[in-house]
């Protein structure tokens, strides 16, 4: 189980206000306003942010600074947003992409 580091021996206490609530894949979560979506989800124990479009393998944050795009999600209808650098806001609707249909490939697999 993941958790927040509320009191750090060098960095001090964490300010956890103001709280916001947002949706990820239809479920409601609580976060701290303007923290990255990925941090808010990890604090809630959510690691899987999307599935690979072709294989469906689960993916989560990898680089956490916007380089790898592994954490890309749809935020309020906009695709390809990086959860690691998009600030979470109250009422945000976030969805992680899933495996996509690939009729040609599947047809080949079964008939080729």
């Amino acid at each position: 189980m993941t958790e927040r580091i509320l009191d750090h021996s060098v960095l001090g206490k964490l300010d956890t206000s103001p709280k916001v609530s947002f949706l990820f894949n239809g479920k409601e979560y609580e976060g701290i306003e303007n923290e990255p979506i990925a941090a808010a989800l990890l604090a809630n124990g959510v690691r899987t942010l999307r599935r690979h479009e072709e294989s469906g393998s689960p993916r989560g944050i990898y680089c956490n600074i916007g380089h790898c795009f592994e954490c890309r999600v749809t935020v309020d209808g906009v695709q390809g947003m990086r959860a690691c650098l998009t600030p979470v806001k109250d009422g945000m609707v976030v969805t992680g992409g899933g495996q996509l249909d690939a009729p040609v490939r599947d047809w080949r697999k079964n008939n080729g």
Binding site: R4, A39, N64
Partner: peptide
Amino acid sequence: MSVGAAQVMTNVHRV
């Protein structure tokens, strides 16, 4: 995750 990712999560976002 990359080691830098863990660093940022821990020290910057405090998760």
